[in-house]
């Protein structure tokens, strides 16, 4: 063996020394307590699962990113690439076996495994997610409640300055459904929207053979972000049908709820947040910490998921990327990641 045994650690995973682990455990226990206080019950799902489960169920994880193993009978297994899908299965099972109302509020703190493209990052292949899933709830109240819990979690973890960015992917979906375009054209448009490439989208849309109001609406989507008030006004101007207006109305109500509860300062809105369109069915939200380059929290409504397990119910949830959160907290305290000049 060429390497020393102490250096013999695979890429993308790492151990944690007591001093680091205690910090992480402390933050996670505060978050766990908060979840419990709000009536969420912690569960555990298997560390490996059949690949086919994640292949057949519509989710948010790229198949290439799953870490695969071969079972003794030749079937392909994957290391837990996501917590939500196994929990959705648990809910569908529970409904069949128990009498009375099954548990509908779940929480988890667990390792997630992915084959990331960034082998330099020592936590890119095994990282901790802490999150909640709430089944059977719908409407403005439920959406606002879950976003409130997301905000409270970050406050509880000790974050000083953060932003919860809220989107409504259906605003875009209800528009693009009305326009006849080839699949590759739609893919291209979505990429431009996701990258906020305003100008290239504008000139691309102008070339399409579609009615002018549709052009205007499509070109406007990535510009519909920022202060909720301004975004809603502009969104209503460009909306080409009532369905789009209803999406805005719902989002507006959720934002009003949150503002009334005193959380207005934490919010921005972005109608160009359209990642994982086939998975999220309603509101979507990302949490960002000031000075930290990546989102630390992702969530949204995914009403279609449990139906694929034969149990049709509503669902909303979010996940906190605990390791990112800890790194961001360190930076906040003037650690190594802030500018030293």
């Amino acid at each position: 063996m060429m390497q020393k045994l102490t250096q013999f650690v695979p890429k993308g995973v790492t151990g944690m020394e007591p001093s680091e682990f205690e910090v992480k455990e402390e933050v996670l226990s505060r978050i766990k307590q908060l979840f419990k206080k709000k009536g969420f019950h912690q569960v555990q799902t298997p560390i490996f699962e059949y690949y086919d489960l994640f292949n057949e169920i519509k989710g948010t994880i790229d198949k290439d990113q799953m870490i695969k193993l071969i079972d003794t009978d030749g079937k392909i297994l994957v290391l837990r690439p996501d917590a939500t899908i196994p929990i959705a299965r648990m809910v569908a099972e529970a409904r069949e076996t128990k009498d009375g109302k099954p548990v509908q509020k779940y929480s988890y703190v667990t390792s997630i495994f992915r084959m990331n493209n960034d082998p330099q990052n020592i936590q890119s292949r095994e990282f901790t997610q802490a999150g909640i899933e709430w089944f059977g709830s719908d409407g403005v109240q439920a959406d606002a409640e879950i976003i409130t819990l997301a905000i409270l979690s970050l406050i509880e973890a000790g974050v000083d300055a953060f932003t919860i960015d809220i989107g409504k992917a259906n605003f875009y979906k209800k528009l693009i459904e009305q326009i006849e375009l080839a699949e590759h054209e739609i893919q291209f448009i979505q990429r431009l929207i996701e990258n906020k490439n305003f100008l290239e989208l504008e000139s691309y849309v102008q070339e399409l053979m579609i009615p002018a109001p549709y052009k205007e609406a499509l070109a406007a989507i990535p510009t519909l972000y920022g202060e909720p008030e301004k975004v809603f006004a502009r969104a209503n101007q460009v909306a080409v049908n009532d369905e789009m207006k209803m999406e805005i109305e719902h989002l507006e109500k959720v934002v009003r709820e949150l503002e009334a509860a005193g959380f207005g300062n934490f919010l921005t809105v972005d109608l160009g947040l359209i990642n994982h369109l086939n998975y999220y069915s309603g509101i979507v939200f990302h949490g960002y910490i000031a000075g930290y380059g990546q989102p630390v929290l992702l969530g949204g409504r995914y009403d279609g998921l449990t139906k694929q397990f034969g149990y049709d119910t509503k669902a909303i949830g979010f996940a906190i990327y605990a390791d990112h959160l800890i790194t961001a907290l360190k930076a906040q305290e003037g650690g190594t990641r802030s500018w030293n000049i």
């Binding site: 953060f162 932003t163 972000y225 920022g226 972005d270 960002y288 910490i289 000031a290 380059g293 990546q294």
Partner: peptide
């Protein structure tokens, strides 16, 4: 950066 774009929007 996507996070800066939101937190310093």
């Amino acid at each position: 950066n996507k996070a800066s774009f939101k937190t310093k929007h």
